[in-house]
């Protein structure tokens, strides 16, 4: 019980503002009328990660990230001009929150997928951004990084 209280306090501390259960674009994880049953989560996740080229599982939404690491992922994608991605708020659904950790065999949120393949969390995306790999990986997805265009213009 104490653990639970501590964990909640931690979440509240790291949260930025009021908890907003609704995603900015109106797409709600659970509003589609289907809450995830445990046994289905793994199968559904297999489909979800393939549905969009870029998929992010995060705390909060891209419009209002609820954790610094999730926010970092959103900002990195924004810098590269990646607008067309699906963000899923794990705070909305405890089954999803645990389910995606099991699915990816990865203990933390956020988690990023490209073309159905697990890329990593915040640290990995940040390092890929820094060492130039992200531009290359986006190219493989057919996404032209906005940073490339910016570079060209400044030359």
């Amino acid at each position: 019980m104490n653990n639970l209280i501590r964990a909640t306090a931690r979440c509240l501390r790291s949260g930025t503002a009021v908890y907003m259960p609704r995603q900015a674009d109106g797409r709600l994880w659970s509003a589609s009328g289907r809450r995830f049953l445990c046994s289905d989560v793994q199968k559904d996740l297999g489909e979800i990660v393939k549905k969009d080229k870029v998929v992010v599982f995060m705390k909060g939404t891209r419009a209002q990230p609820m954790c610094g690491f999730s926010n970092a992922v959103v900002q990195i994608l924004r810098m590269h001009g990646v607008d067309d991605y699906a963000d899923y708020n794990v705070l909305e659904d405890q089954d999803l929150r645990q389910g995606v950790k099991d699915f990816s065999n990865w203990p933390t949120i956020p988690q990023v997928y490209f073309n159905g393949e697990f890329v990593g969390g915040c640290d990995i995306l940040l390092q890929m951004h820094q060492n130039g790999d992200l531009v290359e990986e986006l190219k493989k997805l057919g996404i032209h990084s906005a940073l490339l265009s910016a570079e060209k213009e400044s030359k």
Binding site: A7, R10, C11, S14, C67, F69, P107, T108, C122, D123
Partner: peptide
Amino acid sequence: LKEIHAFE
């Protein structure tokens, strides 16, 4: 990591 909240 089950106990740790954030890990970099």
